[in-house]
Design a protein around this nucleic acid. Structure first.
Length: 670
DNA sequence: TTCCTAGGCCC
DNA sequence: GTACGGGCCTAGGAAA
């Protein structure tokens, strides 16, 4: 175990799993709980290399390396390796060595590339195509999976693969990473060094967020789940009574087969639902549209099946019931209220019993989703579970935050996704601050709209940005003073504003407004967008300017240096990329600075999550005023292009679902 | 198993 | 003359 002389050291660890967090249970896929490192390898610019199994001696060697301030240690995806090293007792937030990350480099330099794994980088950055055998480990796992399972009763992982294979692979990894690093480093320096630096510093903030986690009231999740199961059973009974038996048509190798369903109607199956509609004599009317396929092409796929989404269901029922469905969605009614209201309205307006079908299916799907997407994970995935003196079971959920997953620059979140927790339904009741803490939600006001106004340069909009921009736009479109704008007109203007940012045409804007309960014909849509562009001509000018920039250079650069490479036929997306991406990069800068300030001043307060334009801080009462005030200051200081950035604050004392303005607790920050 | 489709939640 | 943006997760179904 020679200590390397080179100053650039590429490091790669191999582990026996992907998720280092453990609640002691084997997960649904049969993986071991609590992934750990079992070996690692290095490679330096002097050509030195080595492979080591994890031992106390090799870990000591590693610790020395990572705390050597003369070294630059390069990882492919540093967040993963460093989190695993945390579980080996490394103080990963205070390493002395400089950390670099080739995956992040690739993502900032080649943002629209479809993949950033090492094999792809080897092909695309180094131009090496002899990589077919580099998935040896995966191949071995596939070939020996069943045999291994019979012998050991579990799935094999990387640490079960013959060590020569692992060694070959990990040495190839570190060497390849080194050459990729050499190439990408100069590309980063030429194109976006500051952007990369922010992302690099963000590695540590992300690690901290993920390791610290969010506190969950598991008892509450269990209560809510139990209630949801009850609701589900009730709905299932009603549905079975209403529709069974049904005939279901399914396809097998192109041949249609008809099947009788007599025992259980499945509201989650389109075929069952179609069967139920037929049974009740409701003519099927609406079909799904083809969707754009994922990346890089304008091909469409799918479509042509009977559609049973909420908007279709609303059109299948009569007006009063459609109103119930809309109100329920807007106000987040619990299932019981929805249920009562549906039956009440059917009674009151003397509607056919068959009208029960669409609302019951909708509610069934919603409740089912809450159970499988939220409650099950909240109950099963927490670490550090214990019962508090109050008798409630609590735990910590470690979700993932990925700073590089979105091409625009936004964060994404997974396992579970903390960025799409329903605002109005049960799950937010399960998220609670730790003992003696409060959660502060710091939210940039209308940030994307601000950048939209900035890029367009429209003076009327700019003047209204701190008031109510949608109302201002409505006043212009409908030629009336702001005070006389009706709430419906404001809603239309808001829909149009967002539609324009997202690059929608008149027809799509009309359709979207219609779906939101504001019936609009394509013609009316064209009138509105026509008026919009006459009143705000700079918006179209901006779209065109981005388009010609894209055509000329093949990419457009946002104010933080992030480049968007896309085919010119998608130039309608660029306005959105610029608004969304600039906001995202602003947010990242703010987050890094808030996080580093918290560390530098030894604060107990932590950033626990971020939702696109919002940072959530968990603060002890002793420092909440100082920390929140400072965080707002940091966020607002990043004012760009003379657009004031304003931050609004909400506070959570008990449950996320009970988020309020600080003023309602008798204090404020401004 | 794996892949695709549909549906639905967030900003 | 044309185009709503970016995510994540789940269940069902069809082909292998």
């Amino acid at each position: 175990m020679v200590y390397p002389k080179g100053s650039i050291v590429v490091l790669d660890t191999e582990t026996n799993g992907l998720n280092p967090f453990s609640n002691g249970k084997i997960d649904q896929k049969g993986n071991l709980p609590g992934a750990r490192i079992f070996c690692f390898a290095y490679f330096t610019e002097l050509g030195e290399y080595g492979f080591m199994m994890k031992t106390s001696r090799s870990l000591a060697w590693l610790k020395r390396l990572l705390n050597d301030k003369r070294k630059t240690v390069v990882f492919q995806n540093a967040k993963f390796d460093l989190e695993l090293l945390y579980f080996e007792g490394f103080d990963v937030l205070n390493l002395k060595a400089h950390i670099d990350d080739t995956m992040i480099m690739s993502k900032v330099v080649r943002s629209t590339a479809p993949a950033h794994d090492l094999i792809t980088l080897s092909k695309q950055v180094l131009g090496k195509y002899d990589t077919d055998d580099k998935d040896e480990i995966v191949i071995w796992l596939k070939e020996h999976g069943n045999e291994f399972k019979k012998l050991h009763g579990r799935k094999p992982n990387f640490s079960d693969v013959p060590i020569e294979i692992v060694k070959r692979r990990v040495l190839w990894d570190v060497e390849t990473t080194f050459y990729v690093y050499s190439k990408l480093k100069s590309m980063v320096e030429e194109t976006c060094p500051e952007l990369y630096e922010t992302e690099r510093r963000l590695i540590f903030a992300c690690i901290d967020l993920e390791l610290y986690g969010v506190k969950i009231d598991i008892s509450r999740a269990k209560e809510l789940r139990a209630q949801a199961i009850k609701d589900l059973t009730a709905i299932q009974n009603d549905l079975d009574k209403l529709v069974l038996p049904i005939q279901v048509t399914r396809k097998k190798k192109g041949i249609e087969i008809v099947e009788q369903i007599t025992d259980k109607f499945n509201p989650g199956s389109g075929q069952h639902v179609a069967g139920a509609f037929n049974k009740l004599g409701i003519p099927l009317l609406y079909k799904t549209k083809p969707k754009k396929s994922k990346k890089g092409s304008d091909k469409k796929s799918g479509g042509g099946n009977w559609s049973f989404d909420e908007y279709a269901m609303i059109r299948y029922v009569s007006k009063p019931l459609a109103g119930v469905i809309r109100d329920s969605g807007e106000d987040g009614w619990p299932a019981s209220k929805f249920y009562d209201e549906v039956y009440r309205v059917i009674e009151e307006y003397d509607l056919d019993e068959q009208e029960l079908l669409p609302p019951l299916i909708l509610k069934y799907r919603q409740v089912q989703k809450m159970i499988s997407t939220y409650y099950d994970h909240l109950i099963n995935d927490c670490t550090d579970t214990h019962v508090e003196s109050s008798g409630r079971e609590v735990g910590i959920l470690h979700c993932k935050f990925n700073a590089q997953e979105c091409m625009t620059g936004r964060f994404s979140s997974s396992q579970i996704n903390l960025q799409n927790i329903p605002r109005l339904l049960g799950p937010r009741e399960c998220f609670i601050p730790r003992k003696g803490r409060r959660n502060y939600h710091l939210d940039y006001d209308q940030v994307e709209m601000r950048f939209f106004v900035h890029f367009s340069g429209d003076q009327t909009m700019a003047a209204a940005i701190d008031e109510d921009i949608h109302r201002t736009v409505a006043a212009e479109i409908y030629d009336k003073p702001k005070e006389e704008v009706t709430s419906e007109q404001r809603k239309r203007a808001k829909g149009t504003n967002f539609g324009i940012i997202y690059g929608a045409g008149a027809a799509t804007i009309a359709e979207t407004l219609t779906k939101k309960g504001l019936p609009t014909s394509t013609q009316e849509g064209m009138q509105v967008t026509g008026k919009y562009h006459r009143k705000f001509p700079s918006v179209r000018r901006t779209t065109k300017a981005f388009g010609s920039e894209l055509k000329e250079y093949g990419y457009v650069t946002n104010p933080f240096g992030r480049r968007y490479h896309i085919p010119t036929q998608f130039s309608y997306k660029m306005l959105n990329y610029m608004c969304q991406g600039t906001s995202a990069d602003l947010m990242k800068r703010a987050m890094v600075e808030v996080w580093e300030w918290l560390r530098a001043t030894n604060k107990i307060s932590r950033i626990i999550l971020t939702v696109h334009d919002e940072i959530v801080l968990e603060c002890p009462r002793t420092e909440e005023l100082e920390v929140v005030t400072k965080a707002i200051e940091i966020m607002e200081e990043l004012e760009m292009f003379n657009i004031p950035m304003t931050v609004s604050v909400d506070v959570v004392t008990k449950r996320w679902s009970e988020k309020v303005k600080p003023s309602s607790l008798g204090f404020s920050f401004k």
